[in-house]
């Protein structure tokens, strides 16, 4: 058991525990905070795979920006346990069943995918995740898809401004 393995198990347990806590916390603000902890643990996994850029961008974008907006909204909505609408038993059953089916589909796809079978993750060796190589690949091999997705972001931004201007 090397230091990498210890870290892997620690991070995996942390990811799973905090993801479960997101679901079972009664208080929505606690849920958001546990979700942030999940992002941290996942970033730790990225670092183990030597994808440093991905790890830090995951933190900046998700934990640093998007979750702040989540917190904003939740804090202003004043959610109380008392005013939460009661959901019927059937809804809960339907949710559990559809969620479970989704999990089964994902698991079977990952297990049978040709690209993934009989392969192990490259720990600490691959260098495609370093910013230099990643940038090089993005701006040469995948330049067109990259530009197309940036146009998508631009249009989303314009849309947000238009919606915000209405009143």
């Amino acid at each position: 058991m090397s230091i990498t393995e210890i870290l892997f198990w620690f991070l995996s347990v942390l990811t799973l525990v905090s993801a479960i806590m997101v679901l079972i916390s009664k208080n929505p603000v606690h849920s958001v905070l546990w979700l942030i902890a999940t992002f941290f643990a996942i970033s730790g996994h990225y670092i183990l795979l030597n994808a440093q850029f991905l790890a830090i961008v995951n933190l900046i974008v998700y934990a640093g920006a998007i979750m702040v907006l989540f917190l904003f909204v939740i804090m202003l909505m004043n959610l109380d346990v008392a005013i939460e609408p009661k959901r019927s038993m059937w809804m809960k059953f339907a949710g559990v069943i559809s969620g479970g089916l989704l999990l089964a589909v994902l698991l079977s796809v990952v297990r049978t995918s040709v690209d993934l079978t009989n392969k192990t993750a490259q720990l600490n060796t691959g260098d495609i995740g370093l910013i230099k190589n990643l940038g090089h690949t993005l701006f040469t091999q995948y330049a067109v898809p990259f530009e197309v997705s940036s146009i998508l972001f631009l249009s989303a931004m314009v849309g947000a401004v238009v919606i915000g201007k209405k009143n």
Partner: peptide, 25 residues
Amino acid sequence: DVNIGILYIFGVVSLGVYGIMIGGW
């Protein structure tokens, strides 16, 4: 000496908001 030094600082700075928000709420 990580090769994403500046981005690391950026990431941590963006987490500084949580201290304020959580405390205030």
